[in-house]
């Protein structure tokens, strides 16, 4: 049976893993390669590395770290942050990444999703969406690390991303990110019902039951950062907890 995935997310800034609250107050955490290896051994199903400063400082992507991660771990990993052209996809894939996550640049140029999917396969194109609730009961797409509202409807954008050839959608809720009171269940449920590609829920995990809830309502994977980085939730314990809740998981 296909299992639900648990994905630790490592935000990388200047070669170090950091974690901010609502994208601010960034605190230094650890070495990305060491932390990646640790999570892989603990039973993480995949890893995501975001170069969090790349999108606005126009910094070249951290290819060297990608290569070191590929040598160190034997589970799939995704690279995101500052991906703006097909050549960026090629670079990180050749450095050993399995998937590439694209966010602001795809909003600016949706054809990027199509071009990358045609060239490298849909399986490696992850459309990452930063979404925030608005006053009319829906969600807006934000770009540039959550600082700019595009006014685009997040659900519509996710559907368009799927139509353009994205293999997966990572939906990050800005409202719940870093707050640790659970994922945005309504948003994840809506997307899971509407889309035929897998959904990764992101933003808001605080306790083990938060993972169980979002996976039960349809998300295919749940992503989190601080609860793992600060060892508040050991991945092995989380997998056992989910297993007891009859959620299919891979336990190591």
């Amino acid at each position: 049976m296909l299992t639900k995935r648990i994905i630790p997310c490592l935000d990388v800034d200047h070669g170090r893993v950091v974690k901010g609250k609502k994208f601010l107050d960034i605190q230094d955490v650890a070495d990305p390669v060491e932390l990646g290896r640790y999570y892989s051994e603990q039973g993480a199903d995949e890893l995501v590395f975001y170069d969090i400063t790349a999108s606005y400082e126009d910094r070249d992507i951290f290819i060297h770290i990608v290569e070191k991660v590929a040598e160190a771990i034997r589970i799939p990993f995704t690279i995101g942050g500052g991906i703006s052209k097909v050549e960026d996809f090629r670079k990180v894939l050749m450095a050993g990444a399995d998937k590439v996550s694209v966010n602001s640049a795809a909003v600016k140029n949706p054809q990027l999703i199509k071009e990358a999917a045609l060239r490298f396969g849909a399986q490696c194109v992850v459309l990452s969406i930063d979404a925030k609730r608005n006053n009319s009961g829906s969600w807006d797409v934000y770009v540039k690390g959550g600082r700019e509202n595009t006014g685009i409807d997040a659900i519509e954008w996710a559907k368009q991303g799927q139509a353009l050839g994205a293999g997966e959608i990572c939906i990050n809720s800005i409202d719940t990110d870093g707050v640790k009171k659970g994922y945005d269940l309504e948003l994840n449920q809506k997307l899971s019902r509407l889309l035929t590609i897998p959904i990764i829920a992101s933003g808001g995990a605080g306790k083990m039951d938060d993972f169980a809830e979002v996976l039960k309502i349809g998300a295919d994977a749940a992503l989190a950062a601080s609860v793992f980085h600060y060892k508040e939730i050991p991945i092995a314990d989380l997998k056992n907890y989910l297993y007891d809740q009859q959620i299919p998981v891979r336990r190591v």
Binding site: M1, L2, T3, K4, Q123, E168, L195, R250
Partner: peptide
């Protein structure tokens, strides 16, 4: 089912 078949299966 979601397509691609993506993830860990036994």
């Amino acid at each position: 089912i979601k397509i691609p078949h993506m993830g860990w299966n036994n």
